[in-house]
Design a protein around this nucleic acid. Structure first.
Length: 554
RNA sequence: UGGCCUAUAGUAUAAAGGUAGUACGACAGAUUUUGAUUCUGUUUGUCUUGGUUCGAAUCCAGGUAGGCCAACCA
């Protein structure tokens, strides 16, 4: 069948492994270091790892790679778990590399006994120098000749806290002339008298990534250990340890990490944005973090759909932010409640409308065949959007202008009779007449208008605050832009409208509601809202064909 | 310039020696009580040079371009 979705290269490997009986079922893992918040790039990895397990009937462990106590905190552990759950995935086990510290210590001891590890007293500069360069082989120092007994004794003393930080390290005895720098007797244990978020002060030596990750995979019987491209050079070491320790042979596979236009994805840079207050927090709606996107109103299904659409490959990529926005809109279009909100009001008085109020019936969501309805008050004085009126309209403008007609969504067709201005020639009000036979739903007027505007009855309007977000950076490829990335921050990424006019249905809302403000965009309720002041975040704009037309004309 | 990875429309991603397809974008049109949505159509591509073959995006050889690797980070 041509409908069948093609496989990515990792799925191909898995299907082959399964078909050959290499594994009865697969186990994957998502291994974040708890030193920051998860971002959309992590979402790609999460969807991959959990998605693979779901697809092939396997399971996925959540494993915190917490081998560096100085950068890791419980706060991050909690946020990571919340983000994964929100994305809609469940882990089979919650593990920590720190669960395995004792086991890893034994592994190190095993290596020492096999003559494959030694304690080195050199400082980091000397170790770096002795490593050589990609073109110059490294040389071993005298410490490499220590006996097994001496190494065992020193390593035990390291563990027991006899030495200060940096005084000694444990190194694997691998291959000092390997073209792969990671094989040149890598450091596998270092001394850090630091408090660990889980093990407290129990340990003062900690394994390095290379001596923890593969072994942790192996301990958990991970069949397919999937990481990003920059770990390719580590794979040789990963396999070396598994081989020398003769433990379960997990295998590492690498895919290209996600890059997106108009944002940054490195934890270092994101941390900088937060610390230097370019954004308010990790969950600032402009951040590419999962928590930021959640707060902005992006749906979990949209994020999963996005991760599915971008695919998995080994080529460097830069994904268009527009694709993410497409996924977000696609989900919201089906679910968001339609409401009318005027951002920049222009008063209209309907001179021939004499009732105090007329309640009109509007669909909550026309995309939903089973849509519910709401009552919206229509009255003599209403607001429309300032840019829905022009005294001298350009070509193809089919909003309101002097003598022109438009429909007010769900209500009547009106005609603009008079423009009222103040002393400074600003338009302050429009006098209009409505056509009584044109009522929405039973229009017998025979009049056809091209434009339909959103509106709100002044007397019934409620006030709210709206936060409009735009891309965080001014340039597409921030990583490649010259100089400090912070020079490219978009100064207009946040625009606050502290008083907009909303239809009264928005007085009763639930925190989880998603809205489409007609002709304005998709919105959600910000967590900073209070009983007195509701704050809406603009999740994403609607596509704007008119803006495009205007741009073309100019 | 030591080793490793990669190269398909503007951006991603398929095609496992046999019609280069899909999504987003762009453009044009239809529908529309949201200039939204929906629908239809159009446009644009195999890094390069050779070779093998009836036939190459795919296999081989040589170029070229981009990326990664020399943290007591992960």
């Amino acid at each position: 069948m041509s409908e069948e979705k093609s496989l990515n290269f990792i799925e191909e490997i898995i299907e082959k492994d399964l078909a050959e009986g290499k594994h009865a079922s697969i186990i994957t893992r998502f291994p974040p270091e708890p030193n920051g918040y998860l971002h959309i790039g992590h979402a790609k990895s999460i969807c991959l790892n959990f998605g693979l397990a779901n697809k092939y009937g396997g399971k996925t462990n959540l494993r915190f790679d917490d081998t560096n106590p100085v950068t890791e905190e419980t706060e991050y552990v909690e946020s990571i778990k919340a983000d994964i759950q929100w994305l809609g995935f469940s882990w089979a086990n919650e593990f920590y590399a720190s669960d395995y510290f004792e086991k890893l210590y034994e592994f190190a001891t095993t290596l020492i006994k096999k003559g494959l590890a030694y304690v080195d007293d050199s400082n980091s500069d000397d170790i770096a120098k002795q490593k050589g360069s990609p073109t110059v082989p490294g040389v071993r120092n005298k410490y490499a000749d220590r006996t097994v007994e001496e190494n065992l004794e020193l390593f035990t003393a390291m563990r027991n806290g006899k030495y200060a930080d940096s005084e000694k390290v444990l190194r694997a005895k691998a291959d000092m002339s390997s073209p792969n720098m990671h094989m040149r007797d890598p450091i596998i244990y270092r001394i850090k008298h630091a408090h660990h978020h889980r093990t407290g002060n129990k340990w003062c030596i900690y394994p390095m990534y290379d001596f923890a990750h593969g072994q942790s995979d192996s301990i958990e019987n991970i069949t397919h250990s999937i990481c990003t491209l920059e770990f390719i050079p580590h794979r040789e070491l990963y396999n070396w340890f598994i081989d020398k320790l003769a433990i379960f042979p997990s295998h590492q596979y690498e895919f290209a990490r996600l890059n997106m236009t108009y944002t940054v994805m490195s934890k270092r840079k994101l941390l900088q944005l937060v610390n230097e207050k370019h954004v308010t927090s990790w969950d600032d709606p402009r951040m590419p973090t999962i928590s930021g996107m959640r707060r902005r109103g992006y749906g979990a299904a949209a994020l999963r759909d996005f991760c599915d659409k971008i695919g998995i490959a080994k080529r460097e990529n830069l994904i268009d932010l527009g694709l993410l926005e497409f996924c977000v809109r696609e989900e919201l279009n089906k679910t968001a409640l339609r409401r009318m909100v005027v951002f920049h009001p222009l008063k209209i008085t309907i001179t021939n409308f004499d009732k105090e109020v007329e309640w009109v019936n509007l669909e909550d969501n026309p995309e939903d065949p089973n849509t519910t309805y709401r009552q919206v008050p229509f009255s003599k004085e209403i607001y429309i959007e300032q840019d829905d009126f022009m005294e001298q309209p350009p070509k193809k403008y089919f909003r309101l202008f002097p003598g022109g007609k438009v429909r007010l969504k769900g209500a009547y067709i009106i005609q603009c009779d008079e423009v009222v201005k103040d002393n400074e020639n600003n338009i302050v009000e429009l006098k209009c007449t409505y056509i009584p036979e044109s009522k929405s739903g039973n229009d017998t007027s025979g009049i056809h208008v091209k434009g339909t505007l959103h509106w709100v009855s002044i007397a019934h309007a409620i006030n709210a605050e709206v936060k409009l977000y735009d891309r965080l950076f001014k340039v597409e490829n921030v990583a490649e832009a010259e100089g400090d990335f912070k020079e490219y921050i978009n100064p207009d990424s946040l625009q606050i409208l502290d008083k907009v006019y909303a239809e009264p249905a928005l007085a009763n809302v639930n925190f989880d509601d998603r809205f489409q403000f007609l002709r304005k965009g998709y919105f959600c309720i910000d967590k900073d809202s209070t009983a007195n002041q509701i704050i809406f975040n603009r999740t994403v704009t609607l596509k704007d064909g008119w803006a495009k037309e205007v741009k073309k004309q100019s």
